[in-house]
Design a protein around this nucleic acid. Sequence first.
DNA 1: GTTACCTTGCGCAATGTTTAT
DNA 2: AATAAACATTGCGCAAGGTAA
Lengths: 206, 206
Amino acid sequence: MSASHSSSSSLVFSSHNHTSSSMVNTLALTPDSTTSSPTSLAGHMPQMDGGPYGHSMGGHPRTTDSRGGEQMMGLAYLPYSGCLTSTTSERPAQHGHIVQQEFSQFLLPPPPSALRQPGQKRSLSKDSMEYRLRRERNNIAVRKSRDKARRRILLTQQRALQLEEENHRLQLTIEQLSHEVDTLRHYLSQRHLQSKVDDLGAGENC
Amino acid sequence: MSASHSSSSSLVFSSHNHTSSSMVNTLALTPDSTTSSPTSLAGHMPQMDGGPYGHSMGGHPRTTDSRGGEQMMGLAYLPYSGCLTSTTSERPAQHGHIVQQEFSQFLLPPPPSALRQPGQKRSLSKDSMEYRLRRERNNIAVRKSRDKARRRILLTQQRALQLEEENHRLQLTIEQLSHEVDTLRHYLSQRHLQSKVDDLGAGENC
DNA sequence: GTTACCTTGCGCAATGTTTAT
DNA sequence: AATAAACATTGCGCAAGGTAA
């Protein structure tokens, strides 16, 4: 639960810069400590949980823009808060989040011709509108993706808990049934003996 | 084992400072064991140079980040070794490892306000060594924390799968037992009738 | 080849928690 | 009990893949 994030980073158009180096590190995750379990599914879980995950059902979730994906609960990635018509319309800053960039006006109608001028195709200067647009879109995508991941994780946890509970119930049921079987068996064996005794008695009697 | 290789460089206040540009971290550290994975690595550097000055914001000259890519498999979030001189009374760095940071710019007499003066402890200029140290330590902590989180998630997923399996097994067991109970009951009822018949027969007989 | 979106690891900064002093 | 330093978490944006249309 963090709180307002009044980051001072400001970031008004490029400041951040931070030069992150990006050295891609390769997901290490040693088997080492903790659970020596098989871990066979290390990489990705093919299915598991499924949850909100696509798998389509008919079509690709994506279809240009997708966006129709999950829309339950409050999702707040979207740069605009509602009325997109007017110029400014930044995301409502869910948590303070002062960042607000004022290039917002560019977000909506991307004049095709304006983007990327003929001369500089592959440069993508950080000052370019194109760059800013890409960044902003990616930021939205990132927020969305993480939200999804969070939900998925939560779901998995809940599922695990549920399963644990059910497991417990099943165990109890099994105990009960086992006990019942024992009782019946015992009873039956008694009956069996009784019958024999009866038979014997009958034979003797007559 | 593990961990060992690599020099214990630690904050090499590098002389070669590329302040302007490219840090390309030449893949030091062989990924060696485990996880082939991505291999993406380096090739591109986040062109930081374009920006420091050009960008409005008066921005701080964005100290280049640099950093060697540490992090090999397992847990190895540990960068510098301990000789961080002066300034802060840092703990003698328990673990020393790679990472060479180049704080070149700090060597120069930074902005007058950079060094925190007795009066204002809370400044922490981005150029200060103190700042850099804090950041680096935090980065390590972050990597560690995320690694932990990843492991936890994975574990939860595995647990859920296991539980699901076990659940299935239990269900089968229950079915079996139920069936058995039914059979026994049926058998018993037959026996019961038989007994009655026997009793009747016996009564009639004598 | 191009474009748009999705994922993922990273560093930053704010915030939380633990641990010494 | 009060503090400060150290470490842990978390949301965020960036950049580098990856994938599909």
